[in-house]
Computed example of a mutant assay.
Amino acid sequence: MAQVLPFCVLQMDTRSGSQCSITPEAILNNEELVLPPRISRVNGWSLPLHYFQVVTWAVFVGLSLATFRIFIPLLPPAWKYIAYVVTGGIFSFHLVIHLIASCIDPADSNVRLMKNYSQPMPIFDRSKHAHVIQNQFCHLCKVTVNKKTKHCISCNKCVSGFDHHCKWINNCVGSQNYWFFFSTVASATAGMLCLIAILLYVLVQYLVNPRVLRTDPKYEDVKNMNTWLLFLPLFPVQVQTLIVVIIGMLVLLLDFLGLVHLGQLLIFHIYLKAKKMTTFEYLINTRKEETSKHQAVRKDPYLQMDKGFLQQGDGALGSSAQGVKAKSSLLIHKHLCHFCTSVNQDGDSTAREGDEDPCPSALGLQQETTEPMKTDSAESED
């Protein structure tokens, strides 16, 4: 590309342990280059809308119609009013809190005060500055930011207390809207549990005594037991039993899938709060641990050889003479290399390299070193 866009990130491939230098034009996300928007996004309603966000609202509307217009009207009168109050309260709370989490601008306070969102972002010049944020000053937003502020590549602005960028609300989650996001996940999980309880009750009653589900006054004019009414009480529509069963199975399947995803997300954020860390900090710590493990393996060539021989010798070479010979050769080289080691004054053991020494270097084994992962911008997602 002719122009140089804002970000340059150095990422670690944890599977191979190799470094992958990302070009300044974009950041690699799931093997796709993601370009930062030239105009910073204000909140979750800034265009373009993410398709995850569209799916979220479509599922919410569909489950709301199925819950309040199909399945709750099938409950007995006493349970019906309780379900309307409890489930309706949870769904209403979720709707309000979801809108708030999407509408809030999570940017750093100085960014909100001094930034003109209608102006295109400047081009980051790597030759002048090593990082986007240095000494708590963002060279893109041109403002002084807080200590835990990160520059999000998806929104192209500094986010205060950056946790992650959520595709489901199409907005960054930071200190300004984190608890609204957390409440959104918790209320959605509670709503899913209520809907599952209603569906299971309807299913059990249909198998035991279907008449218990036909207590609505509109059923007085319906004589066929194979005919059911949907969208009660305002717009009753007569359908056959098979249609109700199909709708119920689809809603139940969608509910279980949503509950698994939301449940894991809720438990994960409860864990994060217990550890007093953000999603971004958790991911950075995890990558550092993986990098340290890879570096430890690279610095111990015997561990690499052991691993290779165990995988090959126990399998294809396990019982063969070649496999036994390979393992014996490894043991001999280990014992010999004990005699070609010296001890530094500080007590560290190092291997001398020479043509006469049967050390790892003489065997053609090279130690590779990797630098710590460096990031200029933040982008962790749900």
Results as ranks from 00 to 15, higher is better:
Gly318His: 02
Leu272Gly: 02
Ser292Cys: 07
Gly258Arg: 01
Gly318Tyr: 00
Ser320Cys: 06
Lys325Ala: 15
Ala321Pro: 02
Val297Ile: 14
His269Ile: 01
Ala296Thr: 09
Gly315Val: 02
Gln311Glu: 05
Ser292Ile: 13
Lys327Trp: 06
Arg298Gly: 08
Ser292Arg: 07
Tyr282Asp: 11
Gly263Tyr: 01
Phe280Tyr: 15
Ile284Ala: 10
Met277Phe: 02
Lys275Val: 00
Leu262Gln: 02
Gly323Gln: 04
Thr291Gly: 08
Ala316Ile: 06
Ile284Phe: 04
Arg298Lys: 13
Lys299Arg: 15
Ser292Lys: 08
Leu272Met: 09
Pro301Gln: 06
Ala296Leu: 13
Met277Asp: 01
Ala326Phe: 07
Pro301His: 14
Phe268Gly: 01
His261Lys: 03
Thr278Tyr: 05
Gln311Val: 10
Leu265Phe: 03
Ser292Trp: 07
Leu310Asp: 11
His261Pro: 00
Lys307Gly: 13
Leu272Cys: 06
Tyr282Asn: 12
Arg287Ser: 03
Leu266Asp: 00
Ile267Ala: 14
Phe280Ala: 03
Gly323Val: 03
Leu257Thr: 03
Asp314Arg: 11
Val260Ser: 06
His261Tyr: 08
Lys276Phe: 06
Leu257Glu: 01
Phe268Ser: 07
Lys273Ser: 12
Pro301Glu: 07
Thr286Asp: 14
Gly263His: 02
His261Arg: 02
Ala326Trp: 11
Asp306Gln: 13
Leu283Pro: 01
Glu281Gln: 14
Ser292Asp: 15
Lys273Gly: 06
Leu262Pro: 00
Gln311Phe: 14
Ser292Pro: 02
Lys288Pro: 04
Leu303Arg: 15
Leu310Lys: 08
His261Ile: 14
Leu272Lys: 01
Thr286Gln: 15
His261Cys: 10
Leu257Ser: 06
Asp300Gly: 06
Ser319Trp: 02
His261Thr: 05
Arg287His: 13
Tyr282Pro: 03
Gln295Thr: 14
Lys293Leu: 11
Ala321Tyr: 05
Val297Pro: 03
Gly323Thr: 01
Arg287Met: 11
Gln311Cys: 09
Lys276Ala: 06
Thr279Asn: 05
Lys275Met: 05
Lys273Trp: 05
Thr291Lys: 11
Tyr271Ala: 05
Glu281Ser: 07
Lys325Asn: 11
Val260Thr: 06
His261Trp: 07
Lys273Ala: 12
Val297Met: 14
Lys293Trp: 08
Leu265Lys: 00
Lys288Asp: 12
Thr286Ala: 10
His294Trp: 15
Glu289Ala: 13
Ile267Tyr: 06
Ala326Ile: 11
Lys288Glu: 15
Val324Arg: 14
Gln304Pro: 04
Val324Tyr: 09
Ile267His: 05
Lys325Glu: 14
Val260Arg: 10
Ser319Gln: 08
Leu266Glu: 00
Leu259Glu: 04
Phe309Trp: 13
Leu262Glu: 00
Thr278His: 03
Gln322Gly: 02
Gln312Lys: 10
Gly308Leu: 14
Glu289Ile: 13
